[in-house]
Simulated assay, not measured.
Amino acid sequence: MTALADALGLYVHWPYCARICPYCDFNVYRPRGQDDALLDAILADMTGWRQRTGARPLASIHFGGGTPSLMTGARINRLIEHADQLWGFEDGAEIGLEANPNNIDNFADIIAAGVNRLSVGVQSLEDAALSQLGRDHDGALARRAIERAMSLCDRVSIDMIYARAGQTAASWEAELREILAFGASHLSPYQLTIEAKTAFGRRASRGEQLDSPVELAADLFDLTHDICDAHGLPAYEISNHARTVQDQSRHNRLYWEGGDWIGVGPGAHGRIGSAAGTGRLACEARAQPKAYIDAVAGAGSGLGATEQLSASDERAERILMGMRLDDGLDLEVLQRKTGLTIDIDALDRLGAQGLVEQRGARVRLLPAGRIFADRISGELVPDTP
Score class of each variant (00 low, 15 high):
residue 2 T to Q: 08
residue 7 A to Y: 05
residue 7 A to N: 02
residue 8 L to M: 09
residue 8 L to E: 09
residue 12 V to T: 14
residue 12 V to D: 14
residue 14 W to G: 11
residue 16 Y to K: 03
residue 22 P to D: 03
residue 24 C to H: 03
residue 24 C to A: 12
residue 39 L to F: 01
residue 46 M to K: 04
residue 48 G to E: 13
residue 48 G to H: 12
residue 50 R to A: 15
residue 50 R to G: 11
residue 55 A to F: 07
residue 56 R to D: 14
residue 58 L to Q: 02
residue 58 L to V: 03
residue 60 S to V: 03
residue 62 H to W: 06
residue 65 G to L: 10
residue 69 S to L: 13
residue 70 L to H: 10
residue 74 A to N: 13
residue 78 R to G: 07
residue 83 A to Q: 10
residue 84 D to L: 09
residue 85 Q to E: 06
residue 88 G to F: 12
residue 91 D to M: 15
residue 91 D to A: 10
residue 92 G to K: 14
residue 96 G to S: 14
residue 106 N to Y: 07
residue 109 D to K: 07
residue 111 I to V: 06
residue 111 I to T: 13
residue 116 N to D: 12
residue 128 A to Q: 08
residue 131 S to K: 09
residue 133 L to Y: 09
residue 134 G to I: 01
residue 141 L to R: 14
residue 142 A to K: 09
residue 145 A to F: 00
residue 145 A to M: 00
residue 146 I to E: 09
residue 148 R to S: 11
residue 151 S to W: 12
residue 151 S to N: 04
residue 157 S to F: 00
residue 163 A to Q: 08
residue 163 A to P: 13
residue 167 Q to V: 04
residue 168 T to S: 02
residue 174 A to M: 06
residue 175 E to C: 06
residue 175 E to D: 15
residue 178 E to K: 11
residue 179 I to E: 02
residue 183 G to E: 12
residue 184 A to F: 04
residue 186 H to K: 01
residue 188 S to N: 10
residue 189 P to L: 11
residue 191 Q to W: 06
residue 193 T to Y: 08
residue 193 T to D: 07
residue 194 I to W: 14
residue 197 K to G: 15
residue 198 T to K: 07
residue 199 A to K: 07
residue 200 F to V: 08
residue 206 R to K: 14
residue 206 R to E: 13
residue 207 G to Q: 05
residue 213 P to V: 14
residue 216 L to K: 14
residue 216 L to G: 01
residue 217 A to F: 03
residue 219 D to V: 14
residue 220 L to C: 03
residue 225 H to S: 10
residue 229 D to S: 05
residue 231 H to Q: 15
residue 231 H to Y: 05
residue 235 A to E: 02
residue 235 A to T: 06
residue 236 Y to N: 09
residue 239 S to T: 03
residue 243 R to P: 05
residue 245 V to R: 10
residue 248 Q to L: 03
residue 249 S to F: 04
residue 251 H to M: 10
residue 252 N to H: 08
residue 256 W to S: 09
residue 257 E to D: 03
residue 260 D to W: 04
residue 261 W to L: 01
residue 263 G to T: 15
residue 271 R to S: 10
residue 271 R to E: 15
residue 278 T to H: 08
residue 281 L to I: 09
residue 284 E to C: 08
residue 284 E to W: 15
residue 285 A to L: 10
residue 285 A to R: 09
residue 290 K to N: 09
residue 292 Y to Q: 12
residue 293 I to Q: 13
residue 294 D to V: 15
residue 295 A to I: 10
residue 301 S to M: 07
residue 303 L to Y: 04
residue 305 A to Q: 11
residue 305 A to T: 06
residue 311 A to M: 01
residue 313 D to V: 03
residue 318 R to L: 13
residue 323 M to P: 11
residue 328 G to T: 05
residue 330 D to S: 12
residue 330 D to N: 11
residue 331 L to I: 12
residue 332 E to P: 01
residue 336 R to H: 11
residue 336 R to F: 00
residue 341 T to Y: 00
residue 342 I to F: 01
residue 344 I to C: 02
residue 345 D to I: 14
residue 346 A to F: 00
residue 347 L to F: 01
residue 347 L to P: 00
residue 349 R to D: 11
residue 354 G to M: 06
residue 357 E to G: 02
residue 362 R to N: 00
residue 367 P to L: 04
residue 367 P to H: 01
residue 369 G to S: 06
residue 371 I to D: 14
residue 371 I to A: 12
residue 380 L to P: 07
residue 382 P to Y: 13
residue 385 P to Y: 09
